[in-house]
Computed example of a mutant assay.
Amino acid sequence: MEIHHLLEQHSIASKFIAELRDINIQKDQMRFRRNIERLGEILAFELSKSLTYKEKSITTPLGKAITYELNEQIVICSILRAGLPLHNGILSYFDTAENTFISAYRHHISEKEFEIKVEYLASPSLEGKTVILADPMLATGGSFVNVFEALKPMGTPAKIHLVSIIGARPGVDFVSRHFPRDTHLWIATIDEDLNDLGYIVPGLGDAGDLSYGTKLQH
């Protein structure tokens, strides 16, 4: 898997990530969601440089101009619910993309043990298309892998891109082992550790709760 680590080079993305992490700023749910969305836009722009394009002639008020348009069928798949702001950011750049929505959540067996459950899927055919699989937090990597398995009946994509905001090194290694070798991971920053509960350290907490409010565990 090819990893594109955004913060290996300084950019304004650092500001948005800092605000996502900050326990005082992240209390503003609207700003938290908007920062995820903005990072989705930045990651989508970087990802767009790796795609294929075809030449197109268009008519302007003063003549003809040669332009280039995307030559791939894009499907954006977000993992509910934390993936929604990230999905919106990516969709604002790939505005003609098809869309897939899938649920993946932690079902807690005990205080420190959980399994990833997938219970909802709405998707077009993925056969021969470029799939962008989006989840803001890449912790253990279990959500990405389980969702990838759940999507297989929808067809075989031509290309797979994973998009995430913050990852943990163990999770990045895990998805590297379970996705095709030509998969691309576009990630803003990578932390080194997970705690005993499977959360990224230092991370930012629970992105879904911070975006949309706390939930009952089940």
Rank of each mutant, 00 (worst) to 15 (best):
A188Y: 08
V145N: 08
G205N: 04
L204V: 08
Q29I: 07
L121M: 13
T59N: 14
H161Q: 08
I76A: 11
R31F: 02
R33N: 02
M1D: 09
T140D: 00
E69Q: 07
A158S: 15
R169T: 14
I25F: 10
V145F: 01
E37P: 08
I116V: 11
R169C: 02
L47G: 04
Q217K: 15
I17V: 15
E41G: 14
I160R: 05
G213I: 04
K56I: 14
I58S: 02
L197M: 08
G205W: 07
N195I: 09
V163H: 09
I187A: 06
S57V: 15
S143W: 08
A104M: 06
D28A: 06
I42A: 14
A122P: 00
D173M: 09
K64I: 12
P136M: 01
L47M: 15
I76D: 10
K112S: 13
K56N: 10
A139T: 05
E2D: 12
V118H: 07
A82V: 04
G205K: 07
G213T: 06
I36E: 05
E2N: 14
L162N: 12
H108I: 03
R31W: 02
P202D: 11
Y212C: 02
A139D: 01
A122L: 14
H184M: 07
T60A: 08
M1V: 11
Q29F: 00
I102D: 04
G203C: 05
N71M: 05
A158T: 13
S123F: 07
I12H: 07
G205Y: 03
Y120Q: 09
T156L: 13
A158H: 13
V131S: 10
F114S: 06
S103H: 11
G213P: 07
F16K: 03
T130K: 05
R169I: 13
E46I: 09
P170C: 07
